[in-house]
């Protein structure tokens, strides 16, 4: 849930995230460099850039909506401590690493609980507590299990 740095823009219409350099306006627009509008490369909607000061104030008072929750699949490192997840896939490039996790029961479909993130990730699979490095945690993709549902498990 990293906040996008200020040179990233979020289209207010379709939610597409893009860099300023990706915007293309029509050639020969009379506004030239005085134009303060940004065009979303996805839906072509044009909107004014947010003044910096306003951006600071907004970030100060409003919480960035955590869009990641709506996503189906998140990296293990994006899970909150104490949250449960169902493993969707392992993106490890080395097969030995994938198998090293599989022997602990970490295969698609198995459930895990994130116990801590620092200094090293600790997860719980069944009754096994497993410490894994952050680098490997990023390669584990899970589906969040809502807390209400997890309580019944």
């Amino acid at each position: 849930m990293k906040k996008p740095p200020h040179h990233y823009h979020l289209c207010p219409l379709c939610g597409f995230e893009f860099e300023r350099t990706e915007t293309h306006c029509a050639d020969g627009c009379p506004m030239g460099r005085f134009c303060n509008l940004i065009r979303c490369p996805n839906c072509q909607y044009e909107f004014p850039a947010e003044p910096r000061l306003l951006g600071w104030v907004r970030r100060l008072f409003c919480r960035e909506p955590s869009r990641a929750t709506q996503r189906e699949m998140v990296g293990l490192h994006e899970l909150e401590v104490g949250e449960q997840g169902e493993l969707v896939c392992l993106s490890c490039e080395q097969h030995s690493r994938r198998n090293a996790l599989a022997v602990y029961g970490l295969v698609p479909g198995s459930r895990l609980l994130l116990q801590q993130k620092r200094p090293t990730f600790v997860i719980r699979v069944g009754e096994t507590e497993l410490a894994i490095e952050t680098g490997i945690a990023r390669e584990i993709f899970v589906k969040r299990i809502p807390r209400e549902e997890a309580a019944f498990q």
Partner: peptide, 9 residues
């Protein structure tokens, strides 16, 4: 090697 370690109770 990767650090994957079981923590015994």
């Amino acid at each position: 090697s990767d650090f994957i370690m079981e923590l015994p109770p």
